[in-house]
Amino acid sequence: MGQGRIAIMSNAGGTGKTTLAANIAYQLARLGKSVCLIGCDPNGSLALFVGLEDPVDKAETLSKVLSPDFDGDWPLLPVWRDKVNSVDAVLGGLHLFEATKQLDQDPRGAYLLSDSLEDHPLPHDYLLFDCPGTVERYHEVALCGCSHILVTLRPEYKDVDAGFKLINWIYDWQKRLRLKPARKILGVVINGFDRNTAMHREIMGNDPDFSLPIALESMDLALLKSLPFSRQLRNSSANGVPLGLWRPGDDINIQFKEIAQRIVEEVEDA
């Protein structure tokens, strides 16, 4: 089995990418897998959501990995080590903004992360890329580096419209970047579904003109989960731990676990 490299993408802010990344990482670890979270977002909150300090120096971030003289000394930081022993993180954050210039100037630009992973492989079973909330340079970097893609959306028209533009972009850019084998879209995770919001009910409903599940099915894209709006989930993220450590009894943990299992099936059966 090869390493599973999952890019978690969306084309809107606040869709729950980082929350999803942190919780899937935790659930994968519970399934006995080793995981490395990789922050690919200059405005990202990965450090906050996994309870780490913001990096002070760019050498403590992904920036270092994207530099042409990267020697394979990954800036790995242990995560939730008191509870699980197989989760690490490479942080992103504002230092990545400066590294964008590097990406623009380097002849291998978009392929830099992919190159580093090839030249200096990480030992983990799974890598989870936490992507920015809008299609930009680091999306290219993650697209080249990943094997699979997970798309997250809130059930709002703005998110859905932007989400399909992202999917359009994913197909187009794979072609432009000549990525082989093709990166597979694992599916879509809906975040923050609120039964009391008419728009949410419409988007998750049965009217073929407005139904997201029907649109996804016609494109043969899996709707992996629809996660409800949850205050506990927000609280756990703000406290730097996955929901499984904050409220182990919460039902949403089962859903995260099922997403993790689905990822394992996809990656290990291939």
């Binding site: 859905v160 533009k165 359009n168 072609k175």
Partner: peptide, 26 residues
Amino acid sequence: PKRTMALMTQGAVAAQKDAEIESLRE
């Protein structure tokens, strides 16, 4: 009127078809 799913998915569907043909070609 509100954008329908058909309108919102249009581009993605076309790009997906392209990708399928590409992989068949390959």
